[in-house]
Amino acid sequence: MTSDPRFGIELYDAPAGPQRIGDATGTLVGHVWSLDAERLAVRDDGRVVLVDPGGRNPLELNRDLPALREFLAAFGRYYAGDRPAAPAPMTKAEARERLAALQRGDAAPAVPAPTPVPRETRLAALRAELAAADEKALAAGSWWSRVLDEVAARR
Rank of each mutant, 00 (worst) to 15 (best):
G81S: 10
D44G: 15
L65G: 01
A80R: 15
L65F: 03
L68G: 10
R77A: 07
L68M: 13
E10D: 03
E38Y: 06
A67V: 14
G54F: 03
D44N: 14
R56L: 08
W33F: 09
G30F: 01
W33L: 04
F75T: 06
V49N: 08
S3L: 10
P58I: 03
P66S: 13
R6S: 08
L11I: 13
N62G: 10
F7K: 12
V32F: 02
R47C: 07
T27D: 08
P15C: 01
G46D: 11
Q19M: 13
F7N: 10
G54S: 05
A80E: 10
P53D: 10
Y12S: 08
L59N: 09
R63G: 07
R77F: 02
R20K: 14
E60Y: 08
S3E: 15
A37C: 03
E60N: 02
R69M: 09
L68H: 08
Y78M: 04
V49C: 06
V32P: 07
F75M: 14
H31P: 01
S34D: 13
Y78I: 05
E38T: 12
G17D: 13
L61I: 10
L11P: 01
V49W: 02
E70P: 01
P58K: 12
F71P: 10
V48P: 05
L28H: 03
F71S: 00
V51H: 10
R20S: 15
V48S: 06
D45Q: 06
L35N: 14
A74G: 03
R39M: 03
H31V: 06
D4N: 13
L50K: 08
A80P: 02
A37Y: 01
S34G: 04
G76Y: 04
D36A: 08
P5I: 05
G17T: 06
L35P: 11
R39Q: 09
R47M: 10
D23N: 12
Y79W: 11
G76K: 10
A67H: 08
R43H: 00
L65Y: 01
V48Q: 14
N62M: 09
R63T: 11
V49A: 04
G17H: 07
E38C: 05
A37L: 08
P15V: 00
L65I: 05
T27W: 12
A73I: 00
L65H: 06
D64Q: 00
V51R: 13
D23M: 13
L72S: 00
R6H: 15
V49P: 00
V42E: 15
Q19A: 14
G55N: 15
H31N: 12
L68R: 04
R43F: 02
V51E: 05
D13M: 09
L72H: 00
P66Q: 06
V32A: 14
G81T: 12
